[in-house]
Write a protein that binds this DNA or RNA. Structure first.
Lengths: 214, 214, 214, 214
DNA sequence: GATGAATGAGAGTTCATTCAT
DNA sequence: GATGAATGAACTCTCATTCAT
């Protein structure tokens, strides 16, 4: 009897919906992110993730094929969602300078005392450093950086130059690299030094940047 | 008589000189630095360092008590010597703006295609990220950053303010943090993205910074 | 419905029972005991235990956290069970002198040609010698000796003195120490010298001891 | 000139006398004994002995060919000298019972709070336990035990039986084994348990033993 | 699908012994 | 003879991954 029931279960289409699986994956990923932040990718063990997530080891390997894949997706998942939030905010602004100022403000107003927020930054920058040795990470990050980050600024600057808000002799691509260099620099300092006066430093960078454009 | 001779024998100087030992240590450290750059601290094994340095495992452990100590000293040794070179250069300049410009130029003119140079940057930033989880590294870096990096800029800015070169309403400490934030940002990008146009981006940062001061 | 089923799945009993794990641990411990006897604690390697037990290295470390823990439990497990057997035997005897005689007889009739038996004695006395340098072992053994061995004799002697079987001017505690000193001495000789005539020597000790009490 | 002098030194017969070498060896051995007592044979390293003795590693290997040889000689040297002292004392006594009593008293009056004394006992019993696994140690100890310890008692007992001091139906060899079993037992307890009331326990053993003989 | 016991290659570290100086 | 830097095999322990249940 019981056997029959089990067979029936096996025959019906997946009992758990795709949505359910996606939710489970996200649970694992957010646990993993915290573990990676706490110990670093290499030092965090699958057992740490098992313990923190409450999933069994086998279950996790049903969702992901390796620790590396979890790492990849954990970083990707979280940085992507952050990026989309920002894009929505920018769409509501009209001038290029406002948009750039808003981007700075996003980082200035970020709450870096929130552990989850800080964890994400830690793991993200560790991940980025890995790109020196891992071609897969390197190409992924380069593409992502170009498509999502660099072109975002390039577009805003070009639009600003067209409208006359921004000086025309400035190279948009270089400005984009300068912009993200500043953001990365402040972020690294925040992650690295709990006493870093990031609000004031980032505000100065914003003033410098905006003054330079006009 | 015999006793005297024996005492002489006992007094012979060490078979190898202190210089010899220091040189050997440096050999190991520079090999280790390359290994750490190539694979990262965790992934680089003692066997890698053995192979790359040509020393036997036991020999390395005669000079250092652990892999961690090698890591610490490899980063320390190299970043310290770099820092001293910079300080000498600055001493030859008279105005504060020249000094700050010179600091920017040092990074702008750095040859990041030199593998040894690049290795040092890679390992240094990995080391800095470790400070999130390693209190020993954190306190070492915080003290070092304050004493060597922050105070360097603070002194220059205060001198410039006294001489009237730099606006008096700017906070020297925040400026120092802003300055190093920019340098860190550009450096991280260089390490992370081989195509980063660091000369141009750093030059823009320099222009922004100098313009902001005056 | 689906939720209920899932909860049921989550509630399944552990894949292997507690009994299974206890049995596995005992298998490892008895293998380890043989290895420790054969080579001594320091000289016996985890690889020896791996080979002798048939478990993989990882499996052993799933059950025990270190070689030291295996050592501790291997000695403890076996000496404890021996001790309980003896206590049961004594409970069936009525007079104090019979009980003491029975204790001697237990050691006299012990089969020291049985390798497992001999291994236990060897490892136990090595373990005891360790107590000179290992505070953890020392405090464990001292407590155990007091609670299990000394008080056993003290109780028997006091009972015998109350009943008039044993002279009242003898100090029970000292007698206990004398008793176990004799047993330890004979045991060390057995372990150390395969030709030791332990049956006859222990019998003489027994006669001396019993004669002294009355 | 200097070269000539050195050659002269090389040509003369050994500058250091045999006595000098024996003294140096003894220095090393007594340092080694302390190291072995402190950490155990396996755990004590050559570096420990180097540090404790003040000799260089090379020097030690000039006197002894291996750590094992040092161990062997350290135990042998010290236990032998102890044994000779005892023999001298016994020669001054006339009756067998006095001699046996004197032997007990030697151990009763031994100062086990003297670290050097305790170290010797510790190392000696560890050495004896090694005999289970080391045929070389086993045969050495068996011969030594027979020649020095067992025959000592056998001779005394036989002499006592001849004189009528000791009962004739007692087997001298078994008595010898019983005697040393008791001494070993008390000694093991002393080494193992700092609170062992060895004076009282050994005195009881002595009384039992003497009473049994007559 | 879920579980967690089992695997075993590979990590960092130690140390008795050697031998060029 | 004396020195101590060098050696490298061997040690304990870890952990990503698998797979029988």
């Amino acid at each position: 009897m019981i056997a029959t029931q089990e067979e029936e279960v096996a025959d019906v289409p997946p009992v758990v919906s795709e949505d359910y699986k996606v939710k489970k994956k996200q649970e694992i990923l957010s646990s993993a992110l915290i573990c990676f932040a706490k110990k670093g990718y290499q030092q965090a063990t699958m057992d740490d993730i098992v313990e923190h997530s409450g999933f069994s080891k086998g279950a996790i390997y049903n969702y992901f094929k390796s620790k590396e894949e979890i790492y990849f997706e954990a970083v990707n998942e979280n940085t992507s969602s952050m990026h989309n939030t920002v894009k929505d905010k920018l769409a509501q602004l009209s001038t290029s300078l406002d948009k750039l100022a808003c981007l700075f403000d996003t980082y200035i107003n970020n709450d870096h005392s929130d552990p989850a927020e800080k964890a994400l930054f830690q793991v993200y920058y560790e991940f980025r450093l890995q790109s020196c040795r891992d071609e897969k990470i390197a190409s992924y990050l380069t593409r992502r950086r170009q498509e999502s980050f660099i072109s975002l600024i390039v577009d805003i600057v070009q639009e600003g130059q067209k409208k006359g808000e921004i000086q025309n002799d400035l190279e948009p691509l270089i400005l984009a690299h300068t912009f993200w260099g500043m953001i990365d620099g402040a972020s690294i300092c925040i992650v690295t030094d709990p006493a870093y006066p990031y609000k004031q430093a980032l505000s100065q960078m914003k003033e410098m940047f905006v003054a330079y454009l006009t």
